[in-house]
């Protein structure tokens, strides 16, 4: 079975110079507010942060240029390396299960039907719950006599100190964020799935392809733009994740959940070493960009991105 999905690049629709000019004009017009916005609110602050990462700025006085000092210091800072390790672990632990789970839910849920409609709505409920407001409830859920221990008690596991055990605390955060983000991923994937051309599936079914084969050979490749989006968002979200650890564990126990953004926060706003914090942010930025590029490369598989 061969798939012929036409994905012409934007330039392919050009039917003449006038048309190209019209499209360029419309494109510029539509993108102009975004360009101005990103320039003022992100590029300028970003440039400021880059500059600060080469200075000793401590939230007061005139920053003095210190060259690569901050970056050199970073190499020998055990706090940084601990946080980098925690962040890497947290990213893998939260991205992989949540995307696999979201796919597993989204594929059956994307079929039409009244029940599925209701379930789609219910699955979004956690995503609509404010995290900051409900964080206190989560610390109650993970408390000694909380819901988490009640649930594992049902399957015969004794109570665990979720937030005060070095090996468990990170998983407690993973559970909380997966709960929060799953619905969002499901909905985005569902929207992507429902936008797929139904004819291809019918043809494959007529050819006698089983559901697993259809999923692997047709659904996944066709879904790759949506998947790419979800993956990039999930990875970046995990690497920048700050709120769960900030609210639930404050980085504890004994640094086990001190994700990099939390370390950055402590360095920048606790210790007021904004120059150093900026350097940490730049390293994080480069790591995330590199990862994004890899994801774009793997999932691009064509002319778009």
């Amino acid at each position: 079975m061969t798939l012929t999905v036409r994905l012409p690049g934007p330039a392919a629709t050009v039917s003449g110079r006038g048309q190209r000019w019209a499209e360029a004009r419309a494109g510029s017009l539509l993108a102009l507010p975004a360009a101005v916005y990103f320039l003022v609110f992100w590029v300028v602050p970003f440039a400021g942060a880059v500059w600060l990462s080469f200075t000793d700025y401590e939230l007061a006085g005139v920053p003095a240029w210190t060259g690569l000092d901050n970056y050199r210091r970073l190499l020998g800072d055990p706090g940084f390396w601990n946080s980098a390790r925690v962040t890497a672990l947290y990213t893998v632990a939260s991205v992989v299960p949540s995307i696999v789970l979201a796919l597993a839910i989204a594929v059956p849920l994307s079929r039409p039907g009244r029940v599925n409609g209701v379930l789609r709505a219910l699955v979004m409920i956690p995503a609509a719950m404010p995290l900051v407001a409900t964080s206190m409830v989560w610390s109650a859920i993970f408390a000694d006599e909380g819901l988490a221990n009640t649930l594992i008690g049902l399957v015969g596991i004794g109570p665990r100190p979720w937030l005060t055990d070095e090996r468990l605390a990170l998983w407690a955060l993973v559970i909380m964020t997966t709960w929060k983000h799953l619905g969002l991923f499901v909905i985005i994937l569902t929207a992507g799935l429902q936008g797929l051309p139904s004819g291809v599936f019918e043809a494959a079914a007529i050819d006698g392809a089983g559901p697993v084969r259809i999923f692997a050979r047709i659904t996944l490749p066709l879904l790759r733009r949506t998947l790419l989006f979800v993956l990039v968002i999930a990875v970046i979200g995990a690497m920048q994740s700050f709120v769960p650890a900030f609210l639930l564990t404050k980085g504890g126990p004994a640094g086990a959940t001190e994700v990099l953004p939390l370390y950055l926060w402590a360095t920048g706003f606790g210790f007021e070493r904004m120059g150093y914090a900026s350097a940490i942010a730049m390293v994080l930025l480069v790591a995330m960009l590199a990862l994004s590029l890899v994801q774009f490369g793997v999932l691009r598989g064509g002319d778009d991105g």
Binding site: V43, V44, P45, F46, A47, G48, V50, W51
Partner: peptide, 8 residues
């Protein structure tokens, strides 16, 4: 741009 940022 960088200069503007630094200035700001």
């Amino acid at each position: 741009l960088l200069a503007a940022a630094a200035l700001t």
